[in-house]
Structure formats: C-alpha cells, structure tokens
C-alpha cells in the first residue's frame, strides 16, 4: 500500500515535471523529448491501474507513432536562424 503510493508519487512527479518541461523549455526539440517522457510515465500509471493492454497501446501508439510524427515535424520545420539563436 505504502509502496504503491510512493511509486505513484514518484511517477506523478515525473509526469508533471516532464509536462511542465514540455510547455516551458524554449527549444521545441527538447519539448518533444520531454513529451516522450511524460507519455511513458503515463504508461506506468496505466500499469499501476491494472490496464496493461492500454499501457502497451500507450507506448505503441503514442511513443511509437505520435511522438515520431511530432519529431518529424520538428525536424522539418526547424529553420536555420532559429538554431543559431538557441
């Protein structure tokens, strides 16, 4: 019981932290990476909620699909001057 709560708190911290990072960091590329972290930690929450299938789907669809797409977009829209600025 206590371990579970501790685990939840730990991963909740990871989730909220990564989320905050997504919206706060200046570099979009870093945002994308932090989003990946947030999504993975949500998958852990699913496991803890005994939704293993959904956790698997979360990793497959979000991390394997959505995040890859976003990464593509980030790379495709990166402009030279912006890189030199940051």
């Amino acid at each position: 019981m206590v371990y579970e709560t501790i685990a939840f708190a730990l991963f909740a911290l990871v989730t909220v932290g990564c989320s905050l990072g997504v919206v706060l960091v200046r570099d979009v590329w870093h945002s994308a990476l932090l989003l990946g972290g947030a999504l993975l930690s949500v998958a852990v929450h699913y496991v803890m909620l005994q939704a293993e299938f959904l956790a698997a789907m979360q990793i497959l669809v979000y991390v394997g699909g959505v995040l890859i797409l976003i990464t593509f977009a980030v790379m495709l829209t990166r402009t030279q001057p912006e890189v030199s600025n940051t």
Partner: peptide
C-alpha cells in the same frame, strides 16, 4: 508544434 504537444497532454 507546442500546440500539438499540449493537446497531447
């Protein structure tokens, strides 16, 4: 892009 990610969140 941040819009997109925020929507994911």
């Amino acid at each position: 892009l941040l819009f997109l990610m925020s929507v994911e969140l």
